[in-house]
Amino acid sequence: MKKTSLLIAGLVAAPATSASAGTISITIPRLNVAEYHRPYVAAWVEPAGGGAAQTIFVWYDVKLQGREPGTKWLSDLRSWWRKGGRSLKLPADGVSSATRAPGTHKIALPASIKPGQYTLYVEAARETGGREIVSMPLAIPAKGGSVSGKSELGAITISAR
């Protein structure tokens, strides 16, 4: 069973290699705090000339159900929530997934993003912790670039492949 879900995860991740839009890598910093919870993180792009935001991913506590489901704190990603999170039906295939541990994570930019100039936003909010948003220009097809957060996010880089 576990193997199956891993296979499914593999299938979901598969477009990463086939899509040529590019890859972003996001570092979640390791924090030395008494009570650590993995952050909720969302990334989205907005056309440079204005227009609708497109969510690339949102990581939240997808497993937590019951009286206080993991979706309860999605609005803590306050910018993402306003820009599009609140109209997204969750769970969303290929977009939403579980929170991730500190470290660097590579995410393929979806092939559905049309070529053009965008701004990439990454926002993180952590239970009993802080919240941070960083942004950088993004060209599709991706060329490159990097930016770094100060507290809740580490280095964020864009690469062509």
Partner: peptide, 8 residues
Amino acid sequence: TIFSGEGP
């Protein structure tokens, strides 16, 4: 005034 989730 801004809420997410199910029946908050």
